[in-house]
Amino acid sequence: MKIVVEHLRHAYPNGYCALQDVNLTFEGSQPVALIGQNGAGKTTLAKHLNGILRPTSGRILIDGVDVATAQTAQWARKVGYIFQNPDDQLFLDSVRKEFEFGPHQLGVSDEEIEHRTTRIAELVGLEKKLDSHPFDLSPTEKKFCAIGSVLMMNTGALVFDEPTCGQDKIGNDRLAAIISRLKDQGKLCIAISHDMKFVTRNFPRVVLMRKGQVLLAGSREEVFARQEILQKAYVAPPPITRVAQEVGMAKPVFTVEAFTEVIRQAGQKGKERG
């Protein structure tokens, strides 16, 4: 799956220009995180990736085909979109119906839908809630129901808008497992997130946005090495990375293991010198 964004500009009907000349390529199966302040244009950009929003100018190519050539409903076969607020997404009266809606629209056979339902309900942790009304789910379960209903469509790429919002540790761990599973299946995950711990743990690639423009796009190591640009975009690195920067480690460090390794090497060098 390859999504190319070329000179994308988007102005809302009220004249507000949310995106100005965005150029990006999403490719392969390495999960990508979109980061930046509220109002930086992340959601506006994400909503272009399956045609929910249309460019004011510029274009988006999905596997070489211009998104403008077909309706959102057609692109739903290729790119799944999970809304930030599950209440915006869920409208049926049981979890099972929510799960079945997407693949049913795409003409997937009943057997296949049933097969997927079992598998995905387990993945999102709703296997016992399939007959519940989405209204009766807890906020966390609702979020996973929304995720499950899009996973059911088995698209090559998925866009998550703020998946960690309001999640606890268990929820975050489950999300991480889902993202890693999708990556193993060769699918492209794109997520908008404010949670830098979650971003650096699960997303090898990062796109930093500010005021409708892309400031940085690259590996998490490249992006988090550019402290001055991150600061300009008001993005603070996650705790461990910050400590590493404070004590003067040259490269960004994201995990406890990597951190202790650097300290140990520094210790050895110290001994050799001493």
């Binding site: 929910i52 409903a73 739903a76 997407g102």
Partner: peptide, 28 residues
């Protein structure tokens, strides 16, 4: 409006004729 967006992004075509729109709409 948001539910319509959600339906479209889950493969439902409603921008055709009035009847198909209504059919997608009434259950909502």
């Amino acid at each position: 409006t948001v539910i319509e967006q959600s339906q479209h992004s889950r493969g439902l075509e409603t921008s055709g004729n009035i009847i198909s729109r209504a059919r997608a709409f009434i259950p909502l």
